[in-house]
């Protein structure tokens, strides 16, 4: 039985790498990523499980990292926005976001991209409605929504053609 109260060492699997950090049980996955691991691509918009800027993939599924305790993530596979581009080459979803102007300020963008990436991993041929449902929990105050749908459709096509 795992038991911890003060700071303890927790092992996380982030973006394919094992990382050990010393944290209190109250540390959220979001703060662990941003503060302890310096992965600031994942954003804190509300810290209350509403806006989706903190979306990361836990075992391939999008979750709000602000409502996930880091200590609960031992042995879970965590993927963040920093893992998408490989060798300086952007992921097709990232390309599509630029191409379709699916962002303005860019603060919600990493979360939007992670939600869409998870969708496309699971469903290579999503409908507009599938896309909208996948990012309903990712708020965008600038109103890039119409272009986010276009970007997801275009990325899906690009991926089907083999990236």
């Amino acid at each position: 039985m795992l038991k911890a109260s003060a700071k303890s060492l927790v092992q996380l699997q982030v973006n394919g790498q094992a990382q050990e950090i010393s944290i209190e049980p109250r540390r959220t996955l979001l703060d662990a990523l941003r503060v302890d691991l310096g992965l600031t691509g994942t954003k804190k918009g509300c810290d209350e499980g509403t806006c989706g800027a903190c979306t990361v993939l836990k075992e391939g599924k999008p979750v709000y990292s602000c409502l996930t305790l880091a200590i609960e993530c031992e042995h879970s596979r965590i993927e963040t926005i920093e893992n998408l581009a490989k060798d300086g080459k952007m992921h097709p979803v990232q390309f599509a976001f630029i191409e379709q102007d699916a962002l303005q300020c860019g603060f919600c963008t990493p979360g939007q991209i992670m939600s869409i990436k998870a969708l496309l991993d699971q469903n290579p041929k999503p409908t507009e409605s599938d896309i909208k449902r996948a990012v309903t929990g990712n708020l965008c105050r600038c109103g890039a929504y119409p272009n986010i749908v276009k970007a997801a459709l275009s990325a899906a096509e690009r991926l089907r053609r083999g990236g």
């Binding site: 039985m1 038991k3 911890a4 003060a6 049980p25 109250r26 499980g49 305790l69």
Partner: peptide, 29 residues
């Protein structure tokens, strides 16, 4: 801050929850 315990089974969870101010955590949302 709080003490974090992961319960292996139902009986253990119930025992752990008897502590002075314990709460059960599932999704946490």
């Amino acid at each position: 801050n709080f003490e974090y315990v992961s319960a292996p089974n139902l009986a253990s969870a119930i025992t752990q929850l008897q502590g002075s101010n314990s709460k059960a955590l599932a999704g946490g949302t």
